[in-house]
Nucleic acid binder design. Structure first.
Lengths: 97, 97
DNA sequence: CTATTATTTCGATTATTACCGAAATAATAG
DNA sequence: CTATTATTTCGGTAATAATCGAAATAATAG
């Protein structure tokens, strides 16, 4: 994972509401959750929620998939895994800066 | 690791300059690097560098230790490890949100 | 003490982000 | 078609962050 891509993902996760949101999605598994359910759980205005979801999507951490009237938000595990791998490589590598 | 602490660390790592900076420190190992050397490597004004270092320190990702005229910046591996563990637990746990 | 090197704080400007109500769009049911 | 539910975009304000030159502080050498 490129450092700028990693920085972007870290930045978007680096907000309490978005991190909580993403955690909900991850714990929900590969099916994710509808926006409406996220809103009920997090109790924030829908416009604010939508804004945060856009941020997560812009980093590739979440994708949306419509089924009828409901939009499902699906966590992108590959992205998360890539990010973890990036941090771990930083931690363990002995390459020079 | 508490979710707010994790969000804070993610946020501070979520900036290209700071992520680069932190990576330099991590790759330098437990002795870290002096501020001056970071400045030479990154080629940014010292005030800007100082600002970013403060951010990383505010998240507990870096600590400083003075030796004579030189301030060493030391990466806090525990904090990084904690962060990685947090992300991994998110990824693998099947607790409910 | 003074000079030198290392690093931070100050101060001000610009840019970005967060927030949320209200209006708009999307999809479907009836 | 109209009504209903779901979700986003718009518009604006307030808060936070990024930037960097210049001045200030810290430590030591001579």
């Amino acid at each position: 994972m490129d450092i700028d891509v990693a920085a972007k993902a870290l930045k978007e996760l680096g907000h309490p509401t978005r991190l909580t949101l993403f955690r909900c999605l991850v714990k929900a598994g590969h099916a994710g959750l509808p926006v409406g359910q996220l809103q009920e759980t997090l109790q924030i205005p829908n416009s604010t929620l939508s804004h945060h979801l856009s941020s997560l999507m812009s980093a590739g951490l979440v994708k949306q998939q419509r089924e009828g009237r409901v939009l499902h938000c699906i966590p992108q595990f590959d992205c998360l895994d890539g990010l973890v791998a990036f941090l771990q490589e930083e931690c363990c590598s002995d390459e020079k800066c």
